[in-house]
Design a protein around this nucleic acid. Structure first.
Lengths: 221, 221
DNA sequence: CTTTGTGAAAAACTTCACAGCG
DNA sequence: CGCTGTGAAGTTTTTCACAAAG
């Protein structure tokens, strides 16, 4: 079975977690895994795990279950972990520098190919394996390189201008860590990372369990 | 209208973003806002924004719209931003230290009250406004303090043990930044932060738009 | 005119029920 | 048996359609 074109968003959210679990199991030497085992990490039924797996385009073996390495590899292919998306990072502050040195990005198929800032004092400095470049040189840097993603780690007040700049240069996807909501043309994808979302979900759970302290399923993501 | 007890998860995800947008608008001095303006930041219809607002327990004025400051305040109350949840942070590595110094947590109603690590070399050192304490002293620290949340910023291999420890000490909610999936009793809430989720959603959008390069709505969060 | 609020319809997501396979 | 795979049923979330109000 081939992966479908339109994937349910909730499924898409679970898939990276499956990958994480399977990587652990693979490292531990486990060969097979069942949908009901995987479902224990989430707030869902084992049937849902099987639907998710079928969306990924993988098939298990009845009675046996899924091959840990086979499914992990299928997820890696599905997510494009082997394809290596390329990205430029704009904003070489604390968070930006941390991301440059974070090996997790490469593990999930994202390779940073250039780091840019507008601060004269930072240009020329090294962060991780990169030399910080002048944002003014971004147009010529991007020309013909096929970079699809821009990571924005700029201060809030600079975020919309930075977004407009990179969108004007042909970037199709924005991964923003700035604490503000960007407005971009409809054909550009944006994801805003915001710790407050996680905190809100968590404190809501907490409030609910204080009001009604009875059994509830495992939380996730 | 009072807030309802069971809130749709998707609504809960959007609410912190509303708060962010409204804070910006308030700082700019804007007084009123419409549901259709807010909906432009998300992949949803303006009707959905109105439903979300009604879940929060706020009411707008027909023709006029919502009061920016009134709605922002209602969201702050709803999220418990003024209530101040307290948390202990376990694992004073790079990420843990960064979180200790991150003002955004306080803005969203979370106050870290203690920082713990098991590494002898770290115990006694200062991070942000905290002195790193010996994890062995956590039981007496927590006793009677009513701390509900533990932030886990420990290495992967230590994560499950740390989770078991704090759950045993009465913690009801875990906010884990360790790259592994924790298993905890059903009555404990867990949220796993994982950048790969954001990356997966983004690169899926990118892949989709490459296959079928036609109009699509703004993406969010 | 707008813009909110809400019941009804539609769509999306999850679970149920059970077929099929080793 | 125990497990996957899948159409049908059930539940949740979103959109539609329109009443009400300034």
């Amino acid at each position: 079975m081939r992966p479908k074109e339109s994937i349910p968003e909730q499924t898409l959210r679970r898939i990276p977690h499956y990958h994480q679990i399977l990587s652990d199991l693979e490292a531990q030497g486990q060969k097979l895994i069942s949908s009901s085992y995987l479902s224990r990490f989430f707030r869902v039924h084992d049937t849902q795990v099987r639907k998710d797996v079928s969306v990924i385009g993988y098939r298990g073996r009845p009675k046996a279950g899924y091959s840990v390495s086979g499914l992990r590899q299928a997820i890696a292919d599905f997510l494009g972990i082997n394809l290596q998306n390329t990205a430029v990072l704009v904003g070489a502050g604390k968070l930006g520098s941390a991301l440059c040195g974070y090996s997790g990005l490469a593990e999930y198929g994202l390779r940073i190919v250039g780091v840019f800032d507008s601060d004269r004092a930072k240009i020329g400095l090294e962060v991780a394996a990169f030399t910080i470049q002048d944002i003014a040189t971004l147009p010529q840097f991007l020309a013909g390189r096929g970079v699809g993603i821009a990571i924005l780690t700029v201060p809030k007040d600079a975020a919309q201008a930075a977004a407009d700049l990179v969108v004007g240069l042909g970037i199709r996807a924005l991964w923003s860590f700035a604490p503000t909501q960007l407005v971009v043309p409809a054909e550009v994808s944006v994801r805003h990372e915001n710790l407050a979302v996680g905190l809100a979900l968590l404190s809501h759970d907490l409030k609910k369990s204080q009001q009604a302290p009875r059994e509830q399923p495992n939380a996730c993501s």
